[in-house]
Simulated scan of single mutants.
Amino acid sequence: MSAVVAAALRFALVALVLAFLLVPDAFAPLLAPFAPPGGAAIYDRASLLALTVSHLLIVVAAIVPAVAISVGLAILVSRPIGAEFLPLSRAIVNIGQTFPPVAVLALAVPVVGFGAWPTLIALFLYGLLPVFENALAGLTGVPPAVAEAARGSGMTGPQRLLQVELPLALPVILEGVRISLVIALSTATIGSTVAAKGLGEVIIAGLNSNNLAFVLQGGLLTGALAVILYDGLGQVARLTARRG
């Protein structure tokens, strides 16, 4: 029964977000009490759907290379030949956690200019550490008996990695991706301060005009997307764990 309820709640949340993005004016009566007198209840300076798509595209464009590099580094340092590079790899993936996102944006703007690129750089750096640590934990946590059985069956090193170690580590790696994705989704809102298109534009417009309705719809949309993506990847992780 709990699984049915959970599925119903997921469907309801996705349907609610889609309805708000496709017909936002239908929700104006709910948000009107939070708008200033004479102010708009629904953000109308740009399409909410277009801003949401742009927001998600920036997040994906930053997280995909972060995952690829983090998993690659984890594979390298989990091999005997690359074990000595573990401290260096940890130092590299910790760079993003050393500076706050605003500082990364401030440093990136003079180099790459305004727009999406400073936000991409900040999200990429922030996405490295969770994926790296989870990938390393997953790869080094493969049971020795399983690894020895694969070796005894005549598998080469690359075959063991692709057919045994990575499939077994995948659920743990996906947990790291989930964390990075949620961090990136929320952090991407500050990208609007450097002219990156996203839901942060709605929040900033609300703060500038003292319009709580704008702040609520930007914040709630970001939070709902984070819940949907986090839950979706959780389902994928559980499915891969069962298959493993």
Rank of each mutant, 00 (worst) to 15 (best):
Q217E: 13
G96I: 13
G198P: 09
L120S: 00
I95A: 07
G96T: 13
A150L: 08
L199T: 10
Q163C: 05
P144D: 11
G138K: 03
T119I: 03
G138R: 06
A135I: 01
Q97L: 06
V109L: 06
I179N: 12
N210M: 00
L170M: 04
A195G: 01
I190S: 04
F99V: 10
T193E: 03
V142D: 02
A169T: 07
N211T: 13
L120I: 02
L207K: 10
V102T: 13
G200A: 12
M155R: 05
I183P: 13
P118V: 01
I95Q: 04
Q217P: 01
R151H: 15
G154D: 03
T140N: 09
K197Y: 03
I173N: 12
F99Q: 08
F132R: 14
I95D: 00
V102R: 01
S180P: 14
N208T: 11
T189R: 03
I183F: 09
V194N: 02
V109K: 03
G138F: 03
P167N: 06
V146K: 03
G115A: 08
N210W: 01
L129H: 09
A195S: 09
A137W: 02
V112G: 13
A122P: 04
I204V: 15
G191H: 01
A188S: 05
V104K: 03
P143T: 12
L128A: 07
T189N: 05
T119Y: 01
P167R: 10
L216F: 08
I204S: 15
E175W: 00
L216N: 06
M155C: 04
W117D: 14
E175N: 14
N208I: 07
P158L: 09
I121T: 07
P110C: 15
P100C: 07
V172W: 02
I183E: 11
S180D: 10
L161V: 08
W117E: 11
F124L: 07
L123F: 02
V164R: 08
A184D: 00
F132G: 07
S192D: 06
V202A: 10
A147V: 11
V202N: 11
I95T: 12
L107I: 14
N210Q: 02
E133A: 11
A108P: 03
P143Y: 05
L139P: 13
I183T: 13
F214W: 00
Q217W: 00
A150W: 08
I95E: 02
T98I: 13
L120T: 02
Q163T: 10
P171G: 09
W117V: 15
N211F: 03
F124A: 14
G115I: 06
A205Q: 09
L166D: 12
Q97K: 07
Q97M: 15
